[in-house]
């Protein structure tokens, strides 16, 4: 990669620019380092938990897709003996695009269909603010007795747009 391409990569990474078909990981190795995350706990090596009932990040692309795309997030919910399920609602630029009720603390994929009309044109590209509404987020200290004061609901591991 030429020096120009390296700088471009770093610049686009800082904006969290996504490409169709490329999976990116949350955590310190990629997105958490470059993409602003609001309502999240401190990022960890390969994932990041939300901290609070709502968490959001911005997805940008070089241009607005002309066809429907699938936004897919991989992760696992926080459920426990006294926390039977997690309800997660995803809003994309204000559009409600997904709802999931997760009952098991297993790795899962949250997939939402994003229509071309949902994107906003900004800075010459496509802009999409993803707001995750997780009202069931709770502190592990209140649920399992663990020493964890974060108000968690879902562990975000990777994301891809296809």
């Amino acid at each position: 990669m030429s020096q120009r391409n390296v700088m471009e990569w770093e610049r686009t990474s800082e904006r969290g620019v996504f490409e169709i078909g490329v999976t990116r990981t949350f955590g310190l190795g990629d997105l958490s380092k470059y993409m602003p995350l609001t309502g999240y706990a401190a990022p960890e090596e390969n994932h990041v938990w939300n901290d609070g009932a709502e968490a959001s990040f911005v997805v940008t692309m070089q241009s607005i897709p002309t066809e429907q795309v699938i936004l897919k997030v991989e992760g696992l919910p926080f459920v426990a003996e006294d926390l039977k399920s997690q309800d997660i609602t995803l809003y994309f630029n204000g559009y409600r695009v997904g709802f999931w009720r997760l009952n098991a603390m297993d790795k899962t994929f949250l997939a939402a269909e994003i229509e071309p009309e949902y994107w906003l044109a900004r800075d010459g590209g496509a802009y999409g603010k993803c707001v995750w509404h997780m009202p069931g987020s709770m502190r592990p200290s209140d649920v399992t007795g663990a020493d964890d004061q974060r108000e968690i609901g879902f562990c975000f591991q990777s994301i891809a747009i296809s």
């Binding site: 990669m1 390296v6 078909g21 490329v22 990116r24 990981t25 955590g27 190795g29 090596e45 990777s158």
Partner: peptide, 23 residues
């Protein structure tokens, strides 16, 4: 310092791609 983009190919056709950034 670069995170490489890895293309997963099946029979010379790119099936998917991922940024190699896991710790």
């Amino acid at each position: 310092g670069e995170r490489r983009v890895v293309e997963i190919m099946i029979n010379d056709r790119v099936a998917s791609a991922i940024v190699a950034s896991r710790f």
